[in-house]
Design a protein around this nucleic acid. Structure first.
Lengths: 211, 211
DNA sequence: GGGGGACTCACTCTTTAGGGGGAAGACATC
DNA sequence: GATGTCTTCCCCCTAAAGAGTGAGTCCCCC
């Protein structure tokens, strides 16, 4: 999906914060080899904007009002498998980043990236290279290597965060209370948490879970 | 503390995200009556920048790497009581906003404010008016009217979020375990939570607490 | 085929959490 | 003075959580 002018990288910016979009615009202003062709503030408009403009590079926030950036990316890449999408993330150590990379993101950038990093990232993405913010990359390595919670454990923790007791969680998941307790023990051990409250907080801090 | 040119509003931007600072710069570029005289990425440099430039209006993020925006504001206003400081906040319903207003902030703006809102807010602040983002104002009213947690209750909840049990919290606060239990009962009632885990999650969701 | 997770369930045990009620002093407000 | 909230503390009780230990079935990978 080339742009109309082969020498210019066309960019779509997807973020729900106008000021951040303006910041990107500011950084890219004056760069002769890139041009913002569209902005979007949510997932739906991002998908529409992509269909209309076929940008070379899309900067996509993970947190959008209507859907996650990952879902928007999935839709776009299902239609345009060659779409080049860079994830913008606010928080260091966001576990979503790993999921996004698995699903074809071209890389990710912390929102507190410097101007040069942003410009370099866009050019690298256009060139087909994977782009990883150095700061974020170390975090990624951190929780990739660390004890990851299993799917079932995540389900248990999510239910616990909703204020459910072990018995209620067991009913919800269709298992025995002992099983839930067993999962919870693993969770506490993996997260090095003192109790379920601490576990939820730790998981949120590490980006393992969103609340 | 007037600027060198009385017809121009001098602005100091304090935020740890370069892209957001650039966004503000982008929005203010082309406005003949305002000029960014300095940027700062943390509290310390914000205070220094204020001393050096005496801006008419300061845009201050609440979350800074080295100290809270409120602390930075307090230092600045202790030296320059007439300092005009607008709080920038990312999250709707941030309870910190109420505290900032009490301590002399000129107003607050959500970071997803539109360009016009930002420009208007700066001019209003310079003119001595209080500025409240409409969206944020309703949130403010919401948790002002709702069952607010007392200081002590917040302390208990914070300790609980760190994985402490009632006994440990009691030791930390220098009170009896029964007192902590009593506070926790109030917390659960006020937040309509099933247990402490749910209470922490609810408090974070409502912006009452940060983790 | 063996090792290692993940998921499941069971048992016992101690500690903790949470619900109920009551009460007192400090302090501000009306 | 009365009202109300905050903070502190006490009693009771049941239900729940967490620690320890063991064990069965999967399934994947080496």
């Amino acid at each position: 999906m080339p742009s109309s002018d082969a020498s210019v990288i066309t960019v779509l910016v997807v973020d729900d914060h106008p000021l951040l979009r303006d910041g990107v615009a500011f950084v890219l202003t004056g760069e002769p080899d890139m041009r913002i062709v569209a902005n979007a503030h949510d997932g739906r408009s991002a998908i529409e904007a992509f269909r209309e403009h076929r940008p070379d590079v899309t900067l996509m926030d993970l947190q959008l009002p209507d859907m996650s950036g990952i879902d928007a990316m999935r839709v776009i890449r299902s239609e345009f498998p060659a779409a080049c999408i860079l994830i913008l993330t606010t928080y260091r150590g966001d576990v979503q980043v790993a999921r996004a990379l698995k699903q074809g993101a071209s890389g990710f950038l912390l929102k507190d990236s410097l101007r040069k990093e942003l410009r370099d990232a866009i050019r690298s993405a256009k060139a087909g290279r994977r782009v990883l913010s150095p700061d974020a990359a170390s975090d990624l390595a951190g929780y990739m290597s660390g004890d990851a919670l299993s799917e079932r454990e995540l389900q248990v923790l999510h239910s616990a965060a909703r204020g459910l007791g072990n018995k209620q969680i067991a009913a919800e998941l269709g298992v025995s209370e002992d099983t839930v307790k067993s999962h919870m023990k693993s969770i506490l051990a993996k997260l090095d948490a003192n109790d379920r409250t601490h576990a939820v907080v730790t998981a949120v801090k590490r980006g393992i879970m969103q609340i």
